[in-house]
Design a protein around this nucleic acid. Structure first.
Length: 504
RNA sequence: GGCGCCGUACCCAAGUGGUUAAGGGAGCAGUCUGCAAAACUGCGAUGCAGCGGUUCGACCCCGCUCGGCGCCUCCA
């Protein structure tokens, strides 16, 4: 039985969907005014894995992930560049799709945009006005926080506490300092829509309420996003939605932890972030492999814990994944013995159970991965005893099936070709706190191997020559070829039958 | 000021009131191999920041201390 931590209740709870076999899930996407960084990648990935696992568990998942395409930052960016907001948003939505695609993140079933839901947004604001939960001041509409008794139930804060520490200047026109904008009157030159309160645009929080209600209904199962959205964004969404409908909004709330650099939150204001595309561009590995390494690294830590990004962690992920792909390569080789077939089947069954237990327990991906590692090790042992060709195929399929939950182990093989070897990611730590705030992280060359690439044909040619030398017991020459290939990053593995396999 | 999180071996990282504290990476030793690689085997925290307390028993519960961080403002 699946259970996971519900931020709303502050406890790990057994999950039961509102409608049997169907899960309705809404996740806050991004504001499209810039390229996504690894923090965005983590969030998208966490919910991608959750979605995959829910599907694996037999649910049909209605997964809505929005794009915020009306916002101050977008307007600012458009003005800076002298282009329209649409130009900016179209560009970064496109970039989002590309970057997330490279990480193997599946598309949501619906990806609504705020600008396409003005009617629903206005209607929702109007409902709140009708109910006396909102008020208008000179074309702006605010939600009146103290009219919603349960305000603070998600973030576990009291209205009084919030006021005490408020660092923002209080807008005198508000009835309560924490009241937030549902509708903002537009200034000249800003995107605007007609409304009962004059031309304007929606506040940040209302779009998510409007879109989730429209696409998933007034009450739905799961709402997710980054930790930082708990307050005020999600708190406000709850207030607006419940206020308007009088019903429960999302029943389970899931929030992912941050990606950090040198123990600090990765953020634009600290200037310590890496964009996803910059990592792909600077990676010394091909795109598909880089994507899988990143994925492995990002889900190697439980989704609610912080995780520190570094070049070393990517390298570790690569080495860990290599173990699987090395095994897969050997699983493809034929064998007539079936000595250990039975044991292998047992091991696979054990792994399946353990894998599910791990994922059922608050989506514990690190443990799920550990189970796959254990299976890898088991199968290596069985292979030494003798696994039939059929058993080998079964093993490969099982890795693929379980790995699919994590979006891992789906490739036929890892192929380190077609990309120049001149990248690598290095995270340079700041030396003092003062440095860190102004520190711009650099993505630079890691391990440089300036050797020119060899084509597969060239490599095969060399290996044939070496084989020949070996047959003639000319080991000196054979070793010479091995050394030469090694200098190009090619590793040769001799098989028992005298032939060789190789890898980059 | 309010709310909250974290501190597990060289590194990453699970975990739990009572088995041998998962798994990975790196390292070392061995088996195998013409050499090598891979694989396999073994080694690696008498201890889970520190100090107290509760308990028959705590890494896990409580308190304090030290260290690091997050939210309360746009933020994945």
């Amino acid at each position: 039985m699946l259970s996971f931590y519900n931020q709303l209740t502050g406890k790990k709870e057994r999950f039961e969907s509102l409608v049997p076999k169907i899960v309705k899930m809404y996740v806050c996407g991004v504001t499209v005014y810039d390229y996504c960084h690894i923090g965005h990648a983590r969030s998208a990935l966490v919910f991608d894995v959750i979605r995959r696992y829910l599907e694996f568990s037999g649910y049909q998942v209605e997964f809505v992930k929005n794009f915020t395409d009306v916002d101050d930052k977008i307007i600012k960016r458009a003005n800076e560049q002298g282009v329209s907001c649409e130009t900016i948003t179209a560009k970064f939505i496109d970039a989002y799709d590309t970057d997330m695609g490279r990480l193997g993140i599946k598309r949501a079933t619906k990806e609504p945009k705020a600008t396409e839901h003005m009617a629903e947004i206005i209607e929702l604001v109007d409902r709140l006005m009708q109910k006396g939960l909102a008020y208008e001041v000179a074309g702006d509409v605010y939600f009146q926080v103290d009219q919603y008794q349960a305000y603070g139930r998600l973030s576990k804060r009291k209205l009084e506490d919030l006021q005490a520490g408020a660092r923002v200047e209080v807008d005198e026109r508000k009835r309560h300092p924490m009241d937030f904008a549902l509708w903002k009157s537009s200034k000249p030159g800003e995107p605007s829509w007609d409304s009962p309160w004059g031309p304007g645009r929606p506040g940040w929080h209302i779009e998510c309420s409007a879109m989730s209600i429209k696409h998933l209904g007034e009450t739905f199962d799961i709402h997710g996003g980054g930790m930082d959205l708990i307050f005020p964004h999600h708190e406000n969404e709850i207030a607006q939605s419940c206020g308007a409908t009088g019903k429960e909004f999302a029943r389970y709330w899931i929030h992912n932890g941050f990606v950090q650099i040198n123990q600090e939150k990765m953020s634009k204001s600290l200037g310590n972030f890496f964009t996803i595309r910059e990592i792909f561009e600077k990676s010394k590995w091909p795109e598909a492999e880089t994507g899988e390494m990143l994925r492995y690294f990002l889900i190697g830590t439980h989704y609610r814990s912080p995780l520190d990004f570094s070049d070393k962690s990517i390298e570790e992920a690569k080495n860990a994944l290599n173990g699987f792909y090395d095994l897969f390569k050997r699983l493809k080789e034929s064998e007539y013995r079936a000595t250990a077939d039975e044991g292998m089947i047992e091991a696979i069954e054990r792994c399946k159970v353990a894998f599910r237990e791990a994922m059922d327990d608050d989506f514990n991906t690190p443990v799920a991965i550990a189970e796959l590692q254990r299976l890898k090790s088991d199968i290596n042992k069985f292979m030494g005893q003798g696994l039939s060709t059929e058993a080998r195929k079964i093993a490969r399929v099982e890795f693929q099936l379980l790995g699919n939950n994590l979006g891992l182990l789906q490739f036929e093989k890892w192929q380190f070709v077609g990309k120049s070897r001149s990248g690598g990611i290095v995270v340079r730590p700041g030396t003092a706190s003062l440095t860190i705030t102004t520190f711009a992280p650099t993505v630079t060359v890691g391990q440089v191997s300036p050797e020119t690439e060899l084509s597969n044909e060239q490599i095969e040619q060399q290996i044939a020559e070496r084989l020949d030398a070996k047959k003639k017991k000319n080991f000196a020459q054979a070793d010479e070829i091995r050394k030469s290939l090694a200098s190009h990053g090619i590793i040769i593995e001799d098989k028992p039958d005298g032939t060789s396999r190789w890898k980059r």
